[in-house]
Amino acid sequence: MGRLQDKVAVITGASSGIGGKTMELFGREGAKVVGTARNEAKLNEHLEVVTSAGGEGIVVPADLEDDSSPDRVVAAALDAYGTIDILVNNAGVGWQYGIDNPGTMAGVHEASVENWRAIIGGVDLEGYFTMIHAVLPKMLEAGRGSIVNMSSMAGITGLYDAHAYTAAKGAILNLGRSMAITYCKQGVRTNTICPGFIDTPMIAPVVGAFDDPAVASALCPMGRPGQPEEIANAALFLASDEASYVNGAMLVVDGGCTARSFPG
Score class of each variant (00 low, 15 high):
Gly155His: 00
Val93Gln: 10
Ala37Cys: 06
Asn90His: 02
Asp71Gln: 14
Leu47Tyr: 09
Glu110Gln: 13
Met153Pro: 01
Trp116Ala: 05
Asn39Lys: 11
Ile119Thr: 13
Leu159Arg: 11
Ala77Gln: 09
Ile119Arg: 05
Ile156Val: 15
Arg117Asn: 15
Glu141Asp: 15
Asp100Gln: 12
His109Ala: 13
Ile58Ser: 05
Ile86Leu: 02
Lys42Ile: 06
Ala80His: 13
Met139His: 11
Val74Thr: 02
Ala91Gly: 03
Val60Gln: 14
Pro70Gly: 04
Leu125Ile: 08
Ile58Asn: 06
Met139Trp: 09
Asp71Met: 00
Val74Leu: 09
Ile132Ala: 01
Gly92Ile: 00
Ala77Glu: 08
Gly122Met: 07
Ser146Gly: 01
Pro70Phe: 03
Gln96Tyr: 01
Lys32Gln: 09
Lys42Asn: 15
Gly155Asn: 02
Ala77Pro: 06
Thr36Phe: 02
His109Thr: 11
Val108Ser: 14
Trp95Lys: 08
Asn101Lys: 11
Asp66Val: 13
Glu29Asn: 03
Gly57His: 03
Gly55Thr: 04
Ala167Ser: 15
Glu110Gly: 03
Ala142Lys: 09
Leu43Glu: 08
Gly27Cys: 07
Trp95Glu: 12
Arg72Ser: 14
Glu40Ala: 14
Pro137Phe: 01
Arg28Asn: 12
Gly121Phe: 05
Ala53Met: 06
Gly127Arg: 00
Ala53Ile: 01
Met139Val: 11
Val33Arg: 01
Ala162His: 12
Tyr160Arg: 13
Tyr160Met: 10
Val88Met: 02
Ser152Glu: 04
Gly35His: 09
Gly145Cys: 02
Tyr160Gln: 12
His46Lys: 10
Leu43Cys: 09
Met131Glu: 06
Lys138Asn: 15
Gly121Trp: 04
Ile120Gln: 01
His109Lys: 14
Gly54Pro: 03
Val60Thr: 12
Val73His: 09
Arg38Met: 11
Ile84Cys: 06
Asn89Glu: 10
Glu48His: 12
Val74Trp: 05
Ile58Tyr: 06
Val49Lys: 14
Val34Lys: 01
Met139Leu: 10
Leu47Phe: 13
Asn90Leu: 04
Val49Pro: 00
Asp66Ile: 06
Val93Ala: 10
Leu125Gly: 00
Leu140Lys: 14
Leu47Glu: 11
Trp95Ala: 11
Thr166Arg: 07
Ala76Cys: 10
